[in-house]
Simulated scan of single mutants.
Amino acid sequence: MSRKAIRNMTLLLAAAFIVAVSIYNIERMADHSKSIQQIPQPQESQSPNVAVVEVAAATHQAYVEGVGSVEARFDLALNSRVSGQVKTVLDDFESGRLVTSGSLLATLEDSEFRASLESARETLANARVSYLEEQQELQQAQQEWTSSGLTGEPTSSLVLREPQLAAAEAALESARKAVAAAEENLDSTQVKAPFDAIVVSRDIAPGSYIQAGNEIGHLLSADMVEISIPLSASNWSILADEAEFLSGDYSVELRQTETGESWTGDVARVEKNLNVNTRQRSLIVKIEDPLSQETPLYPGTFLKARIPGRAVEGLWRLPASALSQRGEIWIVTEDNLLQAHDANTRFSDPEYIYVVPPDGYREAHVLVQPLSSYSEGMKVVPQRELTNE
C-alpha cells in the first residue's frame, strides 16, 4: 500500500472517531437534559383552611354576670336582758329548727323578778296615795289663803303647797316607770324569738346561770334573704339606672352552679359606697320566703347572678371560642391575611362574647377558633361556618 493511501486511511479513521465521540457526547447531553427536566420542582406551601364567622356591628341586650352568697336579712346573736338561772329550754330551741315570731325558746327562774314587781307595785300605790293627799292639801291651802283676806301672792310657793304637789307627782311618775321596768324584766325571763327565724345554735342548758348581755343563741331571719353582688364600674355602665332597678319590676336570675337549681329575685337596693378592698359597688337582690320556694334557698348558698342591662349599640356578637388565650380576636382581611386585635369585651353569656369592633371595622370575618400556631400576616383560606344571627 502506498504511503498516500496509508495517510488517507489514517485521516478517515480519525474523522470517524471524532464523529463517534461527537455523537456520544450529544446523546449524553440529551439524556442529562431530560433528567434535569424530570427533577420535581418544589411545591408552594398550601394555606390552611380556617372557619370564620361573618359579623356586623349591631345592637344587643346587655347582661352582666356576678356572684354572691345568700345572707339572711337579720343575723342575730340573741342575748339575755336579765341575769338568772335557766329553768327550761324548749324543744324548738335547737339548731336547724324553724321558729315563728314570739314563740317561746327558754325560761329563766323568775321568783326574784316577781317579788321586785310586787314591790314596785306597792311603791306605786303609796305614791298614788301621797299624790292624792297633796292635791287635797293644795286645795285646802288655797281656800285658807283666800279666806284670810290677804292680797297679792304668798311670799313662798310652799304656802300653797305647789312644790309638794310637784314632788308627789314626780314620785308617782317614777313609781309607774319602776312598775313598767319590773314587768319588762319579768317578761324577759321568758326568752322569745323576735322574728320568724332559723335556729343556728343554742348556747344555754337547763340549770346554767347567765348574766345580762350573755349570748344564749344564734338566729337567722327566715322571712327574706339577700344576695350582695359586687359589680365593677364597667358592669355598672351597661346596667339600668337606680330608679328602674327599684321600680319593682326588675328581676334577676340566680343559679347554683353545682346543682343547676335556679331562683328569681328582685332588686332590693343599690349600695352607694365602694368596697375598700375590691373597689366595687354591690347590687342587693332579695328573695322573700326563701324556705317556701319550690327549691328551698338556704342562707350561705353561693349563687351566680345574671342581671339584665341596657341595649348597647355597635357591638359584635362572637362565639365564646373566638377569644384566644391571649384575649385577642383574629380577623381575616380582604387579602385573606390574619390580623390579631385585643378584644374589648363589654359583656358575655355562656355562648357568646360581645365586643367593640376594632378601629376601622364595622363588618369582618372573624376566626371561630384561633390556634396558637397562627401568626399575623399568615395567608389562609376562610370558610364561613356560621353567622352572627
Rank of each mutant, 00 (worst) to 15 (best):
S33K: 14
F195N: 05
V368M: 08
G327V: 07
R28I: 14
Q280G: 07
V67W: 09
L297W: 00
A212F: 03
E328T: 06
A205H: 09
V99Q: 01
I204V: 15
V312D: 04
V355S: 08
A5L: 08
A5W: 05
L246N: 09
Y63G: 00
S2D: 14
D196R: 06
E112G: 09
P194M: 07
R279C: 06
M224Y: 00
A340G: 03
L108V: 05
V89G: 09
L338F: 03
E169T: 05
P299R: 07
K4N: 12
E261W: 05
E183H: 04
P357C: 08
E363V: 05
T264R: 14
I331T: 08
Q383V: 15
N388H: 09
I216D: 03
V129H: 06
N336Y: 01
V312S: 01
E153K: 13
L78D: 03
W263A: 07
Q61R: 15
V368E: 04
V82L: 01
E122A: 14
V64E: 02
S2T: 12
R161Q: 11
L323Y: 02
E294A: 11
E118M: 13
D342Y: 08
S156D: 05
I287T: 04
P48W: 09
A120Y: 09
R346Y: 07
S111R: 08
M224V: 13
D359W: 01
R7C: 02
Q280H: 06
E288N: 14
P299T: 05
L186R: 10
W330I: 10
T345R: 12
I238Y: 01
Y24G: 12
L150I: 14
G377T: 00
L371K: 15
A212N: 00
A180K: 03
E261Q: 12
R255K: 10
S103C: 04
Q136A: 14
E288D: 13
W263H: 00
Y209I: 10
Q142V: 11
I6D: 09
E94W: 02
I18M: 13
L231F: 01
A305Q: 01
S188W: 02
D289M: 11
K272A: 15
D92T: 13
V191N: 04
E137D: 13
I287P: 04
I204L: 10
E253Q: 14
R326M: 08
N344Y: 00
D359F: 04
H32A: 15
T151W: 03
E169V: 03
A240R: 04
A170R: 11
S348W: 08
A14Q: 12
L132D: 13
A178F: 03
S234K: 13
S208D: 12
R317V: 08
V52D: 10
R97F: 05
K34W: 04
T333C: 04
L108E: 02
E351D: 11
E226H: 08
P154H: 05
S83G: 15
R114C: 01
I210R: 03
E215S: 10
R202Y: 02
P370W: 07
L12A: 13
G248H: 06
P370I: 10
A127L: 01
S148C: 13
S292A: 15
S372M: 00
P194I: 06
